[in-house]
Design a protein around this nucleic acid. Structure first.
Lengths: 145, 145
DNA sequence: AGATCAATGCAACTTTATTGCATTTTACAA
DNA sequence: TTGTAAAATGCAATAAAGTTGCATTGATCT
């Protein structure tokens, strides 16, 4: 997603030691401009240098917990992973193609979300806001014809 | 969700024959004022009169396809089911408690979503917009102390 | 009543993710 | 430098959620 993010620094800031595998996972996520499912991340990494599936899951859990990475739910079964909102990157909605399973990032201005009034009266704690549009992407629309 | 919805009619309008089991599934969903996971729906129905897990899944798939019921993704693993937006019910955001797994409906005015400008320029097809707040609900906050 | 199709049930399987425990690597004090 | 503890990783087994194939039951229409 970004050439401005210092992954090593992001890990340190989150209080996790920057092991090789963590850096690798974070780089894949960060260098991709759309969120990826765990299986894709594992496959990509495993091709360049073997890494266990479970290790990837554990690293993802850790990075999500430290809010370095965001876990994004889809209409489908697998969770997708992208960079968590930070100084460089605003939170933004996603588009999920129910046909090919690809998830794209939309620009933050796509939608105008104003829930601050609500936030102040809500009796629970809000950690995260997720917004997703589901549909059929341009490519899949073309193929359909 | 509603005493105004005629479930039998909703099924007919969607072009599916109103079998007993379909009515039962739809009534559970409709009479609940928050979305439920498939397992809960099955458990509840199965207690009053035995029904197969797979039958419930199949009915849910059918109702979602016919847009009578909405499948709502959570931060967790299971999908939740609620009434699809219709004449009686506007689309609305949900709040998902990451602690107890309960999902609540929020009022449609909670957030101000304006994506019509975007919709007109987007090259794909948008079928659905889903918005979800994750956090800890009031009850779980209390328990924590 | 017989034929036909839709709906349901049951068992096996798939996908995605998690757990427990063994092994390896790293950090760091002695 | 070596020993030791803690952290990280790997591997196998298991779990949760959902799906598929095929048999059976039930509904519908002559």
């Amino acid at each position: 997603m970004c050439i401005h993010c210092d992954y090593r620094q992001l890990l340190k800031d989150g209080g996790v030691s920057p092991t090789l595998n963590r850096l690798r996972v974070l780089e894949i996520i960060g260098s991709n401009n759309f969120p990826l499912p765990a299986a894709d991340i594992h496959e990509t990494l495993d091709r360049s240098a073997p890494i266990n599936r479970v290790t990837v899951y554990r690293i993802l859990d850790l990075l999500v917990e430290k809010q370095i990475v965001a876990r994004i739910a889809t209409g489908g079964r697998a969770a997708y992973y992208g960079m968590a909102p930070n100084a460089q990157h605003q939170a933004h909605p996603h588009f999920y193609c129910t046909q090919c399973g690809r998830m794209d990032c939309l620009t933050p201005e796509t939608v105008d979300i104003d829930f601050h009034a609500f936030e102040n009266t809500f009796p629970g704690r809000i950690d995260k806001v997720e917004m997703r549009l589901d549909g059929i992407c341009r490519n899949c629309l073309k193929k359909k014809t």
